[in-house]
């Protein structure tokens, strides 16, 4: 590749590196031990089709999804702990991650720390077993377009359809019923300026959204239980 005139200095530097550079840290350290349990953190906003401004802390689904494939594929990885501290985010990206988690054959345990709000809820319930810390909160609220007056019935129907996708996923993968979930979603008087419900630790377990209150110790021991159970039973198909 010959040097192109008129390129910005940085690009020239990068091009030189492409051809001649040595990197301090090799991307793969050969012989590096693969840990049996991997930990995936879902933090901040779940970024979807739109790149969010840099002030947001984001979880990028285009990175998480191949990671999940890699974890599923790698026989040395026995289990996955998903740690959630998210304020929600893109519906499609969130549901994509949730569906991936749900259909993995590698045992998964989710741990909600701090918060697992909005689209974080389907991700939390997608794991084989879910744990919430005593002080963590989960906000269940309707999907809406803020600042927009819904004047056209079609817009409302579209929002309703989006909402149904989320509700259906949560109901199918947890012990909560559609009626209870809808009731929590549209409850008034609980949130100061909004419709919805905030569930703190134990409450999330009581309504059947999450399996147990605990911490990292609980989550990891549940994960090892699942892993040993799975190794006795043999691999099961994740395509139910």
């Amino acid at each position: 590749m010959s040097e192109q005139p008129g390129l910005p200095e940085e690009e020239v530097t990068l091009q030189t590196i492409k051809e001649l550079g040595q990197v301090e840290l090799p991307p793969t350290s050969p012989g590096a031990e693969v840990q049996p349990y991997h930990c995936l953190t879902i933090i901040g906003q779940i970024e979807g089709h739109m790149v969010l401004p840099p002030r947001n802390k984001t979880t990028k689904y285009e990175h998480v999804i191949p990671q999940l494939v890699a974890i599923e594929q790698n026989p040395k990885i026995k289990g996955l702990l998903v740690v959630l501290n998210t304020v929600g985010g893109d519906i499609e990206a969130g549901l994509a991650i949730a569906e991936m988690l749900k259909t993995m054959t590698t045992p998964t345990v989710s741990l909600v720390l701090g918060g697992g709000h909005s689209i974080g809820a389907p991700i939390a319930v997608a794991a084989d077993y879910s744990v919430i810390s005593a002080t963590a909160t989960m906000t269940i609220h309707p999907i809406r377009l803020s600042g927009l007056v819904i004047g056209v019935p079609q817009t409302y129907e579209y929002l309703d359809k989006m909402q149904d996708r989320v509700i259906r996923f949560i109901v199918e993968h947890s012990r909560v019923s559609t009626d209870v979930l809808r009731d929590m979603m549209f409850r008034t008087g609980e949130l100061v300026r909004d419709v919805g419900t905030v569930l703190v630790g134990e409450e999330a377990v009581r309504v059947g959204l999450i399996d147990e209150v605990g911490g990292v110790g609980t989550a990891l021991s549940r994960l090892s239980q699942l892993v040993s159970q799975r190794s006795i039973e043999g691999p099961v198909g994740g395509m139910q």
Binding site: Q45, G88, G89, H117, S118, H141, I143, S146
Partner: peptide, 10 residues
């Protein structure tokens, strides 16, 4: 479409 507890303007 965003489904989040953070106000959209933020």
């Amino acid at each position: 479409m965003l489904y989040t507890v953070v106000p959209l303007e933020d």
